[in-house]
Design a protein around this nucleic acid. Structure first.
Length: 130
RNA sequence: ACGGCAAGCCGGGUGGCCGCGGCGCGCGCGGCGCACCCGUCCCUUCACGAGGCGGGUGGGCGGCGCGCCGAGGAAAGUCCGGACACCGCAGAGCAGGGCGCUGGAUAGCAUCCAGCCGGGGAAACCCGAGGGAAAGCGCAACAGAAAGCAGACCGCCAGCGGCCGCCGUCGGGGCACUCCGUGCCCCCUUGGUGGUGCGGGCAAGGGUGAAACGGUGGGGUAAGAGCCCACCAGCGGUCCUGGUGACAGGCCGGCUCGGCAAGCCCCGCCCGGUGCAAGACCAAAUAGGGGAGCGUCUGAGGGUUGCUCGCCCGAGGCUCCCGGGUUAGGUCGCACGAGGCGCGCGGCAACGCGCGUCCCAGAUGGAUGGCCACUCUCGACAGGAUCCGGCUUACAGGCUUGCUACAGGA
RNA sequence: CGGCGUGUGGCGCAGCCUGGUUAGCGCACUAGUCUGGGGGACUAGGGGUCGCCAGUUCAAAUCUGGCCACGCCGA
Protein backbone atom coordinates (compact mmCIF):
# COMPACT_ATOMS: atom_id res chain seq x y z
CA UNK A 1 0.00 0.00 0.00
CA UNK A 2 1.39 3.32 -0.96
CA UNK A 3 1.46 6.48 0.99
CA UNK A 4 -1.18 8.26 -1.01
CA UNK A 5 -3.74 5.71 0.11
CA UNK A 6 -3.06 6.31 3.77
CA UNK A 7 -4.37 8.90 6.12
CA UNK A 8 -1.58 11.03 7.46
CA UNK A 9 -2.98 14.16 8.96
CA UNK A 10 -4.29 14.42 12.44
CA UNK A 11 -7.16 16.52 11.06
CA UNK A 12 -8.07 13.72 8.68
CA UNK A 13 -8.28 11.30 11.56
CA UNK A 14 -10.35 13.77 13.55
CA UNK A 15 -12.80 14.15 10.70
CA UNK A 16 -13.35 10.41 10.48
CA UNK A 17 -13.76 10.07 14.22
CA UNK A 18 -16.18 12.98 14.60
CA UNK A 19 -18.25 12.70 11.47
CA UNK A 20 -17.91 9.02 10.68
CA UNK A 21 -19.73 5.90 11.75
CA UNK A 22 -18.23 3.22 13.95
CA UNK A 23 -18.53 -0.53 14.20
CA UNK A 24 -16.56 -2.79 16.51
CA UNK A 25 -15.66 -6.43 16.94
CA UNK A 26 -13.56 -8.28 19.48
CA UNK A 27 -10.37 -7.60 17.52
CA UNK A 28 -10.97 -4.29 15.75
CA UNK A 29 -12.84 -1.02 15.76
CA UNK A 30 -13.76 0.45 12.36
CA UNK A 31 -14.56 4.09 11.68
CA UNK A 32 -15.65 5.13 8.18
CA UNK A 33 -16.65 8.45 6.72
CA UNK A 34 -18.10 9.44 3.36
CA UNK A 35 -16.44 12.37 1.62
CA UNK A 36 -18.51 15.36 0.67
CA UNK A 37 -19.10 15.72 -3.05
CA UNK A 38 -16.06 16.04 -5.30
CA UNK A 39 -12.87 14.61 -3.88
CA UNK A 40 -12.94 10.99 -4.95
CA UNK A 41 -9.60 9.25 -4.84
CA UNK A 42 -8.69 6.29 -6.95
CA UNK A 43 -8.61 4.02 -3.92
CA UNK A 44 -10.25 3.96 -0.51
CA UNK A 45 -7.95 5.46 2.09
CA UNK A 46 -6.98 3.83 5.39
CA UNK A 47 -5.68 5.03 8.70
CA UNK A 48 -4.38 2.71 11.39
CA UNK A 49 -4.23 3.13 15.13
CA UNK A 50 -2.38 0.55 17.18
CA UNK A 51 -1.67 1.49 20.75
CA UNK A 52 1.04 0.18 23.05
CA UNK A 53 -1.52 -1.94 24.85
CA UNK A 54 -1.47 -4.25 21.84
CA UNK A 55 2.19 -5.09 22.34
CA UNK A 56 5.76 -4.07 21.72
CA UNK A 57 7.10 -2.46 18.60
CA UNK A 58 7.58 -5.76 16.81
CA UNK A 59 4.02 -6.86 17.52
CA UNK A 60 2.55 -3.49 16.55
CA UNK A 61 4.43 -3.43 13.27
CA UNK A 62 3.24 -6.93 12.48
CA UNK A 63 -0.37 -6.03 13.22
CA UNK A 64 -0.20 -2.95 11.02
CA UNK A 65 1.45 -4.87 8.21
CA UNK A 66 -1.16 -7.59 8.22
CA UNK A 67 -4.03 -5.14 8.44
CA UNK A 68 -2.72 -3.17 5.47
CA UNK A 69 -2.31 -6.35 3.48
CA UNK A 70 -5.83 -7.50 4.30
CA UNK A 71 -7.32 -4.10 3.62
CA UNK A 72 -5.62 -3.84 0.26
CA UNK A 73 -7.01 -7.19 -0.73
CA UNK A 74 -10.52 -6.05 0.15
CA UNK A 75 -10.10 -2.54 -1.27
CA UNK A 76 -11.58 -3.19 -4.76
CA UNK A 77 -14.86 -4.17 -3.16
CA UNK A 78 -15.04 -1.07 -0.96
CA UNK A 79 -16.47 2.34 -1.62
CA UNK A 80 -13.87 4.78 -2.92
CA UNK A 81 -15.77 7.65 -1.42
CA UNK A 82 -14.88 6.69 2.12
CA UNK A 83 -11.97 7.14 4.46
CA UNK A 84 -11.47 4.31 6.92
CA UNK A 85 -9.75 4.14 10.30
CA UNK A 86 -9.01 0.84 11.98
CA UNK A 87 -8.20 0.68 15.67
CA UNK A 88 -6.53 -2.54 16.78
CA UNK A 89 -7.62 -4.02 20.09
CA UNK A 90 -5.27 -6.12 22.24
CA UNK A 91 -6.70 -9.59 21.38
CA UNK A 92 -5.66 -9.14 17.77
CA UNK A 93 -2.04 -9.56 18.83
CA UNK A 94 -2.64 -13.26 19.28
CA UNK A 95 -4.14 -13.60 15.83
CA UNK A 96 -1.14 -11.86 14.33
CA UNK A 97 1.18 -14.06 16.34
CA UNK A 98 -0.50 -17.28 15.11
CA UNK A 99 -0.53 -16.03 11.56
CA UNK A 100 3.17 -15.27 11.75
CA UNK A 101 3.73 -18.85 12.84
CA UNK A 102 2.06 -20.22 9.76
CA UNK A 103 -1.71 -20.15 10.12
CA UNK A 104 -3.46 -18.48 7.22
CA UNK A 105 -5.74 -15.50 6.81
CA UNK A 106 -6.76 -15.04 10.45
CA UNK A 107 -6.46 -11.25 10.29
CA UNK A 108 -8.02 -11.15 6.82
CA UNK A 109 -11.08 -12.97 8.06
CA UNK A 110 -11.40 -10.77 11.13
CA UNK A 111 -11.31 -7.67 8.92
CA UNK A 112 -13.69 -9.02 6.30
CA UNK A 113 -16.20 -10.02 8.93
CA UNK A 114 -16.17 -6.53 10.36
CA UNK A 115 -16.41 -4.86 6.95
CA UNK A 116 -19.38 -7.02 6.01
CA UNK A 117 -21.25 -6.34 9.21
CA UNK A 118 -20.62 -2.62 8.76
CA UNK A 119 -22.25 -2.80 5.33
CA UNK A 120 -19.45 -1.08 3.46
CA UNK A 121 -18.90 -4.01 1.09
CA UNK A 122 -21.83 -2.91 -1.03
CA UNK A 123 -19.43 -1.71 -3.66
CA UNK A 124 -18.89 -5.30 -4.70
CA UNK A 125 -21.34 -5.03 -7.60
CA UNK A 126 -20.27 -1.50 -8.47
CA UNK A 127 -16.64 -2.47 -8.90
CA UNK A 128 -17.00 -2.76 -12.66
CA UNK A 129 -19.07 0.34 -13.24
CA UNK A 130 -17.63 2.82 -10.79
C1' A B 1 36.62 -38.02 28.66
C1' C B 2 32.97 -36.06 32.34
C1' G B 3 32.92 -31.40 35.56
C1' G B 4 34.12 -26.21 36.97
C1' C B 5 35.91 -21.07 35.71
C1' A B 6 37.12 -16.94 32.51
C1' A B 7 37.51 -14.17 27.83
C1' G B 8 35.90 -13.33 22.85
C1' C B 9 32.44 -14.21 18.80
C1' C B 10 27.82 -15.69 15.99
C1' G B 11 22.39 -14.57 16.40
C1' G B 12 20.28 -19.32 10.17
C1' G B 13 22.33 -19.67 4.85
C1' U B 14 21.58 -19.68 -0.70
C1' G B 15 18.35 -18.81 -4.98
C1' G B 16 13.57 -17.11 -7.22
C1' C B 17 8.76 -14.23 -7.27
C1' C B 18 5.64 -10.39 -4.97
C1' G B 19 5.40 -6.14 -1.44
C1' C B 20 7.50 -1.58 1.59
C1' G B 21 11.12 3.08 2.69
C1' G B 22 15.33 6.08 0.84
C1' C B 23 18.87 7.66 -2.94
C1' G B 24 20.57 7.96 -8.09
C1' C B 25 19.72 7.64 -13.43
C1' G B 26 16.36 7.47 -17.65
C1' C B 27 11.35 8.52 -20.13
C1' G B 28 8.61 11.09 -27.43
C1' C B 29 4.29 9.55 -19.92
C1' G B 30 0.27 12.52 -17.50
C1' G B 31 -1.71 16.37 -14.73
C1' C B 32 -1.15 20.50 -11.15
C1' G B 33 1.48 24.75 -9.06
C1' C B 34 6.07 28.15 -9.67
C1' A B 35 9.87 31.28 -12.15
C1' C B 36 11.64 33.52 -16.62
C1' C B 37 11.29 34.81 -21.94
C1' C B 38 8.43 35.84 -26.47
C1' G B 39 3.82 37.10 -28.90
C1' U B 40 -0.95 39.46 -28.36
C1' C B 41 -5.98 39.90 -34.18
C1' C B 42 -9.26 39.11 -29.69
C1' C B 43 -11.15 40.40 -23.65
C1' U B 44 -10.43 44.56 -19.22
C1' U B 45 -8.09 50.09 -20.18
C1' C B 46 -8.49 56.73 -23.47
C1' A B 47 -3.49 54.96 -23.83
C1' C B 48 1.20 52.63 -21.81
C1' G B 49 2.24 49.05 -17.99
C1' A B 50 -0.27 44.98 -15.99
C1' G B 51 -3.82 40.93 -15.95
C1' G B 52 -6.16 37.28 -19.20
C1' C B 53 -4.99 34.24 -23.43
C1' G B 54 -1.34 31.50 -26.74
C1' G B 55 3.71 29.51 -27.27
C1' G B 56 8.63 28.20 -25.36
C1' U B 57 12.48 27.08 -21.55
C1' G B 58 13.91 25.63 -16.59
C1' G B 59 12.90 23.37 -12.20
C1' G B 60 9.23 21.18 -8.29
C1' C B 61 5.35 17.44 -7.14
C1' G B 62 3.36 12.80 -9.37
C1' G B 63 3.60 8.14 -12.66
C1' C B 64 6.49 4.21 -15.03
C1' G B 65 11.24 1.50 -15.72
C1' C B 66 16.26 0.16 -14.10
C1' G B 67 20.19 0.06 -10.42
C1' C B 68 22.09 0.45 -5.35
C1' C B 69 21.20 0.58 -0.03
C1' G B 70 17.87 -0.62 4.09
C1' A B 71 17.64 -2.13 12.25
C1' G B 72 20.39 -4.60 17.26
C1' G B 73 23.68 -7.13 20.63
C1' A B 74 20.82 -5.54 23.26
C1' A B 75 18.16 -0.88 18.66
C1' A B 76 15.03 -1.74 25.05
C1' G B 77 14.92 0.50 30.29
C1' U B 78 16.11 5.94 30.34
C1' C B 79 20.13 4.72 35.13
C1' C B 80 24.88 7.74 34.35
C1' G B 81 28.49 10.58 31.14
C1' G B 82 29.18 13.76 26.88
C1' A B 83 28.55 16.14 21.85
C1' C B 84 25.13 19.73 19.88
C1' A B 85 21.28 23.72 20.39
C1' C B 86 18.86 27.61 22.88
C1' C B 87 18.15 30.51 27.33
C1' G B 88 18.47 39.35 28.74
C1' C B 89 26.38 35.45 29.37
C1' A B 90 26.49 31.62 32.86
C1' G B 91 29.80 36.17 38.16
C1' A B 92 30.42 35.16 43.66
C1' G B 93 28.59 32.96 48.21
C1' C B 94 25.02 29.84 50.58
C1' A B 95 21.64 26.06 49.78
C1' G B 96 20.93 21.55 46.85
C1' G B 97 22.71 17.18 44.21
C1' G B 98 26.44 13.51 42.83
C1' C B 99 30.93 10.79 43.57
C1' G B 100 34.57 8.40 47.37
C1' C B 101 40.82 2.31 48.49
C1' U B 102 45.50 3.31 44.96
C1' G B 103 47.65 4.24 40.20
C1' G B 104 46.42 4.70 35.17
C1' A B 105 43.00 5.15 30.53
C1' U B 106 39.46 8.70 28.46
C1' A B 107 36.27 14.30 25.65
C1' G B 108 33.87 12.64 30.06
C1' C B 109 31.60 9.17 33.52
C1' A B 110 28.80 6.12 38.62
C1' U B 111 32.65 3.34 32.85
C1' C B 112 37.20 0.54 31.63
C1' C B 113 42.31 -1.51 32.86
C1' A B 114 46.17 -2.90 36.38
C1' G B 115 46.80 -3.37 41.53
C1' C B 116 45.85 -3.12 47.22
C1' C B 117 42.74 -4.65 51.21
C1' G B 118 38.45 -7.54 52.98
C1' G B 119 35.05 -11.75 52.07
C1' G B 120 33.73 -16.59 49.42
C1' G B 121 35.77 -21.16 46.98
C1' A B 122 39.53 -27.32 46.98
C1' A B 123 41.52 -24.49 42.78
C1' A B 124 40.98 -21.72 38.37
C1' C B 125 38.36 -17.64 39.78
C1' C B 126 34.35 -14.60 41.73
C1' C B 127 32.12 -10.59 44.87
C1' G B 128 32.69 -5.63 47.47
C1' A B 129 28.94 2.49 47.13
C1' G B 130 36.03 0.19 50.08
C1' G B 131 37.54 8.19 53.01
C1' G B 132 36.63 9.89 58.32
C1' A B 133 33.43 7.12 64.44
C1' A B 134 39.85 10.57 69.76
C1' A B 135 35.19 17.44 65.34
C1' G B 136 30.29 17.14 67.12
C1' C B 137 24.99 15.45 67.47
C1' G B 138 22.19 11.00 67.32
C1' C B 139 20.54 5.55 67.35
C1' A B 140 20.65 0.29 69.55
C1' A B 141 13.66 -2.74 70.20
C1' C B 142 13.27 -7.44 73.12
C1' A B 143 16.32 -9.97 76.52
C1' G B 144 19.91 -8.91 80.21
C1' A B 145 22.68 -6.91 86.59
C1' A B 146 24.73 -3.69 83.07
C1' A B 147 24.24 -1.21 75.99
C1' G B 148 28.40 3.12 76.01
C1' C B 149 31.06 4.65 80.77
C1' A B 150 32.25 2.08 82.89
C1' G B 151 29.86 -0.34 86.36
C1' A B 152 28.71 -5.29 89.44
C1' C B 153 22.97 -9.26 89.70
C1' C B 154 24.38 -14.18 90.86
C1' G B 155 29.24 -15.37 92.10
C1' C B 156 34.68 -15.68 94.21
C1' C B 157 37.96 -13.88 98.39
C1' A B 158 40.05 -12.57 103.14
C1' G B 159 38.66 -9.35 107.56
C1' C B 160 35.26 -7.67 111.56
C1' G B 161 30.80 -8.12 114.82
C1' G B 162 26.27 -10.32 116.97
C1' C B 163 23.20 -14.53 116.68
C1' C B 164 21.93 -19.59 115.09
C1' G B 165 22.98 -24.90 113.46
C1' C B 166 26.68 -28.87 113.25
C1' C B 167 31.53 -30.99 114.65
C1' G B 168 35.65 -30.76 117.97
C1' U B 169 38.16 -28.78 122.50
C1' C B 170 40.06 -26.62 128.18
C1' G B 171 37.61 -26.54 132.85
C1' G B 172 33.36 -27.38 136.10
C1' G B 173 28.69 -29.68 137.50
C1' G B 174 24.68 -33.35 137.24
C1' C B 175 22.69 -38.30 136.03
C1' A B 176 23.24 -43.73 134.72
C1' C B 177 26.17 -48.27 135.29
C1' U B 178 29.40 -51.20 141.23
C1' C B 179 34.29 -47.43 142.14
C1' C B 180 38.48 -46.17 138.46
C1' G B 181 36.46 -45.30 133.94
C1' U B 182 32.89 -44.89 130.16
C1' G B 183 28.43 -42.81 128.10
C1' C B 184 24.74 -38.91 128.10
C1' C B 185 23.06 -33.89 129.45
C1' C B 186 23.98 -28.65 131.10
C1' C B 187 27.23 -24.15 131.87
C1' C B 188 31.73 -21.87 130.40
C1' U B 189 36.80 -21.18 127.29
C1' U B 190 38.36 -21.72 122.45
C1' G B 191 38.81 -23.61 117.24
C1' G B 192 36.75 -25.28 112.47
C1' U B 193 32.68 -25.05 109.21
C1' G B 194 27.85 -23.44 107.20
C1' G B 195 24.03 -19.59 107.24
C1' U B 196 23.09 -14.41 108.13
C1' G B 197 24.97 -8.95 108.79
C1' C B 198 28.74 -4.89 107.92
C1' G B 199 32.40 -2.34 105.35
C1' G B 200 36.11 -3.91 101.65
C1' G B 201 39.00 -6.68 97.46
C1' C B 202 38.02 -9.08 92.45
C1' A B 203 35.91 -9.56 87.54
C1' A B 204 37.89 -15.70 86.44
C1' G B 205 32.98 -18.29 85.98
C1' G B 206 27.16 -18.05 85.13
C1' G B 207 23.25 -16.39 82.17
C1' U B 208 21.05 -12.49 78.08
C1' G B 209 22.05 -10.47 73.50
C1' A B 210 23.68 -8.93 66.92
C1' A B 211 27.21 -6.73 70.17
C1' A B 212 29.42 -7.22 77.22
C1' C B 213 36.05 -3.55 77.40
C1' G B 214 41.26 -8.61 73.82
C1' G B 215 41.83 -14.66 72.63
C1' U B 216 44.52 -19.43 73.99
C1' G B 217 48.03 -21.63 77.32
C1' G B 218 51.23 -21.08 81.56
C1' G B 219 52.94 -18.53 85.93
C1' G B 220 51.00 -15.89 89.94
C1' U B 221 47.32 -14.80 94.07
C1' A B 222 43.38 -14.74 99.90
C1' A B 223 40.49 -14.70 95.42
C1' G B 224 41.72 -12.68 91.00
C1' A B 225 43.16 -9.51 87.00
C1' G B 226 48.06 -7.97 80.87
C1' C B 227 49.65 -8.44 87.28
C1' C B 228 53.84 -11.20 84.53
C1' C B 229 55.42 -14.45 80.21
C1' A B 230 54.82 -16.98 75.09
C1' C B 231 52.01 -16.94 70.59
C1' C B 232 47.94 -14.55 68.02
C1' A B 233 44.56 -10.27 67.10
C1' G B 234 44.17 -5.01 67.54
C1' C B 235 46.27 0.06 68.56
C1' G B 236 50.26 3.64 68.54
C1' G B 237 55.43 5.24 66.90
C1' U B 238 59.31 11.96 64.69
C1' C B 239 61.56 4.38 63.39
C1' C B 240 63.76 0.94 59.27
C1' U B 241 63.11 -1.65 54.32
C1' G B 242 60.31 -2.24 49.55
C1' G B 243 56.62 0.28 46.41
C1' U B 244 54.68 6.37 42.31
C1' G B 245 50.76 4.88 45.72
C1' A B 246 46.82 2.09 48.30
C1' C B 247 49.80 -1.01 51.28
C1' A B 248 53.18 -5.00 52.81
C1' G B 249 57.26 -6.79 55.94
C1' G B 250 60.33 -5.74 60.25
C1' C B 251 61.57 -3.31 64.96
C1' C B 252 59.95 -0.84 69.39
C1' G B 253 56.11 0.55 72.99
C1' G B 254 52.55 0.29 76.76
C1' C B 255 49.08 -3.60 77.05
C1' U B 256 44.32 -1.79 74.70
C1' C B 257 37.80 -0.75 74.05
C1' G B 258 33.58 -1.02 70.36
C1' G B 259 29.09 -0.91 66.06
C1' C B 260 25.97 2.14 62.69
C1' A B 261 27.93 7.61 58.44
C1' A B 262 23.11 3.47 51.66
C1' G B 263 21.35 8.53 60.12
C1' C B 264 22.63 13.94 60.41
C1' C B 265 27.48 15.25 59.58
C1' C B 266 33.11 16.27 58.52
C1' C B 267 36.96 16.06 54.59
C1' G B 268 38.29 15.93 49.27
C1' C B 269 36.64 16.31 44.10
C1' C B 270 32.69 17.51 40.49
C1' C B 271 27.89 19.94 38.87
C1' G B 272 24.29 26.92 35.52
C1' G B 273 19.33 25.51 33.48
C1' U B 274 16.45 23.31 29.69
C1' G B 275 16.36 19.71 26.17
C1' C B 276 16.28 17.86 18.77
C1' A B 277 8.83 18.21 20.54
C1' A B 278 16.39 21.92 21.49
C1' G B 279 16.64 25.31 17.60
C1' A B 280 16.73 27.84 12.40
C1' C B 281 14.04 29.07 7.95
C1' C B 282 9.61 29.09 4.46
C1' A B 283 4.29 29.34 3.52
C1' A B 284 -0.75 30.50 4.99
C1' A B 285 -4.11 32.75 8.43
C1' U B 286 -4.67 36.30 12.32
C1' A B 287 -3.51 41.12 16.14
C1' G B 288 -1.33 45.81 14.85
C1' G B 289 3.34 46.34 16.24
C1' G B 290 8.54 44.89 16.85
C1' G B 291 13.89 45.78 17.05
C1' A B 292 18.57 48.79 17.43
C1' G B 293 21.13 53.29 18.97
C1' C B 294 21.46 58.08 21.67
C1' G B 295 19.85 60.92 25.79
C1' U B 296 17.05 63.53 30.38
C1' C B 297 14.38 63.55 35.10
C1' U B 298 16.76 59.36 39.02
C1' G B 299 14.34 55.88 39.95
C1' A B 300 7.97 53.12 41.06
C1' G B 301 8.09 48.41 39.40
C1' G B 302 9.99 44.05 37.02
C1' G B 303 13.52 40.16 35.29
C1' U B 304 17.70 37.02 36.46
C1' U B 305 16.81 28.41 38.56
C1' G B 306 15.79 28.05 45.49
C1' C B 307 17.96 32.41 48.55
C1' U B 308 21.47 36.69 49.14
C1' C B 309 24.82 39.87 46.76
C1' G B 310 25.80 41.34 42.05
C1' C B 311 23.89 42.19 37.12
C1' C B 312 20.08 43.64 33.62
C1' C B 313 15.42 45.83 31.92
C1' G B 314 12.57 49.91 32.90
C1' A B 315 7.35 54.93 31.38
C1' G B 316 7.37 59.61 28.26
C1' G B 317 11.80 62.30 23.92
C1' C B 318 14.94 61.92 19.34
C1' U B 319 17.20 59.05 15.27
C1' C B 320 17.46 54.67 12.37
C1' C B 321 15.74 49.81 10.60
C1' C B 322 11.38 46.51 8.76
C1' G B 323 9.40 42.92 9.62
C1' G B 324 8.40 40.45 14.53
C1' G B 325 5.24 36.88 17.44
C1' U B 326 2.00 32.40 17.50
C1' U B 327 0.29 27.73 15.14
C1' A B 328 -0.95 19.70 15.24
C1' G B 329 1.64 22.49 7.32
C1' G B 330 6.61 22.22 4.68
C1' U B 331 12.22 22.45 4.54
C1' C B 332 16.60 22.19 7.47
C1' G B 333 18.74 20.38 12.00
C1' C B 334 19.54 14.70 10.07
C1' A B 335 23.96 11.36 9.67
C1' C B 336 31.52 11.62 7.83
C1' G B 337 31.25 10.16 13.15
C1' A B 338 35.49 10.86 20.13
C1' G B 339 33.17 6.18 12.81
C1' G B 340 33.99 0.79 11.02
C1' C B 341 37.70 -2.78 9.17
C1' G B 342 42.93 -4.38 8.29
C1' C B 343 48.22 -3.93 9.26
C1' G B 344 52.41 -1.99 12.07
C1' C B 345 54.50 0.31 16.57
C1' G B 346 54.32 1.65 22.14
C1' G B 347 52.00 -0.26 26.70
C1' C B 348 50.97 -6.11 31.47
C1' A B 349 46.25 -3.91 30.03
C1' A B 350 42.35 -0.26 29.30
C1' C B 351 44.17 2.61 25.38
C1' G B 352 47.22 5.69 22.22
C1' C B 353 49.96 6.81 17.60
C1' G B 354 50.85 5.98 12.29
C1' C B 355 49.47 4.02 7.45
C1' G B 356 45.89 1.91 4.19
C1' U B 357 40.85 1.14 3.06
C1' C B 358 35.28 1.67 3.30
C1' C B 359 30.64 5.06 3.25
C1' C B 360 27.20 1.82 6.31
C1' A B 361 18.96 3.26 7.61
C1' G B 362 17.28 8.26 7.72
C1' A B 363 11.34 7.27 8.44
C1' U B 364 7.58 11.38 10.12
C1' G B 365 0.11 7.99 11.33
C1' G B 366 6.23 6.33 10.93
C1' A B 367 9.46 1.41 6.18
C1' U B 368 12.49 -5.20 6.63
C1' G B 369 7.45 -8.85 5.44
C1' G B 370 4.92 -12.96 2.66
C1' C B 371 5.25 -17.34 -0.55
C1' C B 372 8.24 -21.35 -2.87
C1' A B 373 12.68 -24.65 -3.29
C1' C B 374 17.13 -26.71 -1.14
C1' U B 375 20.03 -27.06 3.25
C1' C B 376 21.68 -26.89 8.66
C1' U B 377 22.28 -27.59 14.72
C1' C B 378 14.78 -25.94 12.73
C1' G B 379 15.92 -20.18 14.47
C1' A B 380 15.37 -16.87 21.18
C1' C B 381 14.89 -11.87 23.09
C1' A B 382 13.23 -8.29 20.24
C1' G B 383 13.28 -3.27 16.13
C1' G B 384 16.03 2.90 14.69
C1' A B 385 13.46 8.32 15.65
C1' U B 386 19.47 13.92 17.07
C1' C B 387 24.10 11.31 17.73
C1' C B 388 28.06 8.95 20.59
C1' G B 389 30.49 6.33 25.22
C1' G B 390 28.94 3.17 29.24
C1' C B 391 25.65 0.65 32.88
C1' U B 392 21.39 -2.42 33.68
C1' U B 393 17.69 -5.74 32.06
C1' A B 394 15.62 -9.79 28.23
C1' C B 395 17.52 -13.88 25.25
C1' A B 396 16.66 -20.54 21.69
C1' G B 397 20.98 -22.35 20.49
C1' G B 398 26.01 -22.59 18.80
C1' C B 399 31.49 -21.69 17.98
C1' U B 400 36.68 -20.50 19.44
C1' U B 401 40.65 -19.86 23.01
C1' G B 402 42.84 -20.19 27.80
C1' C B 403 42.91 -21.88 32.90
C1' U B 404 41.66 -25.36 36.99
C1' A B 405 40.24 -30.02 40.03
C1' C B 406 39.97 -35.40 40.00
C1' A B 407 41.54 -39.85 37.49
C1' G B 408 45.24 -41.73 34.13
C1' G B 409 50.17 -41.51 31.61
C1' A B 410 55.35 -39.88 31.78
C1' C C 1 10.04 11.67 22.77
C1' G C 2 10.75 14.03 27.39
C1' G C 3 9.34 14.84 32.65
C1' C C 4 6.82 13.13 37.22
C1' G C 5 3.94 10.07 40.69
C1' U C 6 1.82 5.60 43.01
C1' G C 7 2.05 0.18 44.45
C1' U C 8 0.27 -2.03 52.18
C1' G C 9 -5.99 -7.76 54.07
C1' G C 10 -11.61 -8.16 49.19
C1' C C 11 -12.07 -2.26 48.53
C1' G C 12 -10.42 2.79 50.00
C1' C C 13 -6.43 4.80 52.88
C1' A C 14 -2.50 5.73 57.28
C1' G C 15 2.36 4.27 58.91
C1' C C 16 8.00 5.30 55.59
C1' C C 17 10.99 11.46 56.09
C1' U C 18 13.32 10.11 61.97
C1' G C 19 14.66 1.58 60.81
C1' G C 20 12.97 -2.17 66.32
C1' U C 21 7.89 -1.93 70.34
C1' U C 22 1.77 -3.54 67.43
C1' A C 23 1.76 -3.39 60.51
C1' G C 24 -3.18 0.67 62.25
C1' C C 25 -8.31 2.88 60.55
C1' G C 26 -13.16 2.66 57.92
C1' C C 27 -16.27 -0.45 54.88
C1' A C 28 -16.78 -5.56 53.73
C1' C C 29 -16.43 -11.10 55.75
C1' U C 30 -17.39 -15.15 59.75
C1' A C 31 -19.57 -16.62 64.52
C1' G C 32 -22.50 -15.38 68.74
C1' U C 33 -26.16 -12.20 71.52
C1' C C 34 -30.53 -8.82 71.41
C1' U C 35 -35.60 -9.65 67.78
C1' G C 36 -41.23 -13.88 66.30
C1' G C 37 -38.41 -12.83 61.45
C1' G C 38 -35.85 -8.98 58.60
C1' G C 39 -33.15 -4.55 59.17
C1' G C 40 -30.07 -2.58 62.76
C1' A C 41 -26.96 -2.56 67.14
C1' C C 42 -23.35 -4.93 70.36
C1' U C 43 -19.40 -8.60 71.37
C1' A C 44 -15.66 -11.78 69.62
C1' G C 45 -12.74 -13.48 65.53
C1' G C 46 -10.34 -14.60 60.76
C1' G C 47 -7.75 -12.56 56.73
C1' G C 48 -1.66 -8.85 54.68
C1' U C 49 4.74 -12.45 50.35
C1' C C 50 3.81 -4.25 52.74
C1' G C 51 4.67 -5.13 43.83
C1' C C 52 9.40 -8.32 42.85
C1' C C 53 14.92 -9.13 43.42
C1' A C 54 19.47 -7.75 45.57
C1' G C 55 22.44 -4.63 49.05
C1' U C 56 23.49 -1.71 53.85
C1' U C 57 22.40 -2.97 59.03
C1' C C 58 22.29 -7.05 64.77
C1' A C 59 17.49 -5.80 62.55
C1' A C 60 14.12 -3.13 56.42
C1' A C 61 6.95 -1.82 54.88
C1' U C 62 10.64 2.16 56.21
C1' C C 63 17.36 3.42 53.85
C1' U C 64 20.11 2.42 48.79
C1' G C 65 20.20 0.22 43.81
C1' G C 66 17.87 -2.59 39.84
C1' C C 67 13.46 -4.66 37.59
C1' C C 68 7.72 -5.00 36.98
C1' A C 69 2.82 -2.95 36.77
C1' C C 70 -0.49 1.15 36.79
C1' G C 71 -1.49 6.34 36.42
C1' C C 72 -0.56 11.66 35.33
C1' C C 73 1.67 15.93 32.76
C1' G C 74 4.21 18.74 28.46
C1' A C 75 4.50 19.72 23.01
Amino acid sequence: MQKRSRLSRSSEFQRVYRQGTSKASRFLVLYYFEHPSGAVSTEPRLGLSVSKKVGGAVVRNRVKRLLREAFQESAPRLSRRHDYVLIARPPIAELAERQARGEKRLVHEALDELLRSAGVMTATEATGTE
